[in-house]
Simulated scan of single mutants.
Amino acid sequence: MRGTGRRLELASHAAGGPPVSLSDAFAQVLRRCREQAGLTPAALALRAGLSPGIVERLESGGCEPSVLVVSQLAEALGMRGHELVRLVEAAIGDRAHGTGRVARHDDAADDDPAQPRNRSESAP
């Protein structure tokens, strides 16, 4: 939907709640992760090789990031791109189901897809 002027909306019809904006969920997660890392928007932008204005627009929900920008931000925050995406997915799910909880950077730390989720998966 890039370039159409409309934001991608993800709805939870089962929960009966309002649509959850991808850009708003990304904004909340990015802000939370940045604050946990003890960085200002300008410091995060510098680490990620982005302009401070882009980080501020992302944190306000004013734009949606490209895959490259997600990767740059994740690396600057000390995580992998898929971890940042999973935090956003969790925030969307939580907001859509009415919990109001915003995922934290720590929530993705143990979520390594290369590692088995339980002992039965690690058996030969």
Rank of each mutant, 00 (worst) to 15 (best):
Met1His: 09
Met1Lys: 10
Met1Ile: 09
Arg2Leu: 14
Arg2Asp: 15
Thr4Lys: 04
Gly5Trp: 00
Gly5Ala: 04
Arg7Glu: 02
Arg7Trp: 00
Arg7Ile: 06
Leu8Pro: 04
Leu8Lys: 06
Leu8Gln: 13
Leu8Asn: 08
Ala11Met: 05
Ser12Thr: 09
Ala14Glu: 09
Ala14Gly: 11
Ala14Met: 12
Ala15Arg: 14
Ala15Leu: 05
Gly16Cys: 09
Gly16Ile: 03
Gly17Trp: 01
Gly17Tyr: 03
Pro18Ile: 09
Pro18Asp: 14
Pro18Ser: 13
Pro19Asp: 09
Pro19Gln: 05
Pro19Glu: 11
Pro19Asn: 03
Val20Lys: 06
Ser21His: 00
Leu22Asn: 02
Ser23Leu: 08
Asp24Val: 13
Asp24Glu: 15
Ala25Pro: 15
Ala25Phe: 04
Phe26Gln: 11
Phe26Val: 06
Phe26Met: 12
Ala27Pro: 11
Gln28Ile: 03
Gln28Gly: 12
Arg31Asn: 01
Arg31Trp: 14
Arg32Trp: 01
Cys33Lys: 01
Cys33Ser: 15
Cys33Thr: 11
Arg34Lys: 11
Glu35Thr: 14
Glu35Leu: 10
Glu35Ile: 14
Gln36Ala: 12
Ala37Asp: 14
Ala37Pro: 11
Gly38Asn: 07
Leu39Pro: 15
Leu39Tyr: 07
Leu39Gln: 09
Ala42Ser: 11
Ala42Ile: 06
Ala43Lys: 01
Ala43Gln: 04
Ala45Asp: 06
Leu46Ala: 14
Leu46Gln: 14
Leu46Met: 08
Leu46Arg: 09
Arg47Met: 09
Ala48Val: 13
Ala48Leu: 04
Leu50Ile: 08
Ser51Tyr: 06
Ser51Trp: 12
Ser51Thr: 15
Pro52Asn: 07
Pro52Thr: 08
Ile54His: 10
Val55Gly: 05
Glu56His: 05
Glu56Lys: 00
Glu56Asp: 10
Glu56Val: 11
Arg57Cys: 05
Ser60Ala: 14
Gly61Ala: 02
Gly61Lys: 09
Cys63Thr: 13
Glu64Leu: 03
Glu64Gln: 10
Pro65Asp: 02
Leu68Cys: 07
Leu68Met: 11
Ser71Tyr: 13
Gln72Gly: 10
Leu73His: 03
Leu73Lys: 11
Leu73Ile: 02
Ala74Pro: 15
Gly78Cys: 04
Met79Phe: 07
Met79Asp: 06
Glu83His: 13
Leu84Ser: 04
Leu84Ala: 04
Val85Trp: 12
Ala90Gln: 12
Ala90Asn: 09
Ala90Arg: 14
Ile92Gln: 02
Gly93Ser: 06
Asp94Phe: 00
Asp94Gln: 10
Arg95Leu: 11
Ala96Tyr: 04
Ala96Lys: 08
Ala96Pro: 10
Gly98Thr: 02
Thr99Tyr: 03
Val102Gln: 04
Ala103Gly: 07
Ala103Tyr: 07
His105Cys: 12
Asp106Glu: 15
Ala108Val: 14
Ala109Asn: 07
Asp110Met: 12
Asp111Gly: 03
Asp112Phe: 04
Asp112Tyr: 01
Pro113Thr: 02
Pro113Gln: 02
Pro113Arg: 08
Pro113Asn: 06
Ala114Trp: 12
Ala114Glu: 14
Ala114Asp: 13
Pro116Trp: 05
Pro116His: 06
Arg117Tyr: 05
Asn118Thr: 12
Arg119His: 08
Ser120Gly: 05
Ser120Ile: 07
Glu121Asn: 00
Glu121Trp: 02
Ser122Gln: 12
Ser122Glu: 12
Ser122Gly: 04
Ser122Asn: 02
Ala123Lys: 05
Ala123Pro: 00
Ala123Gln: 12
Pro124Glu: 04
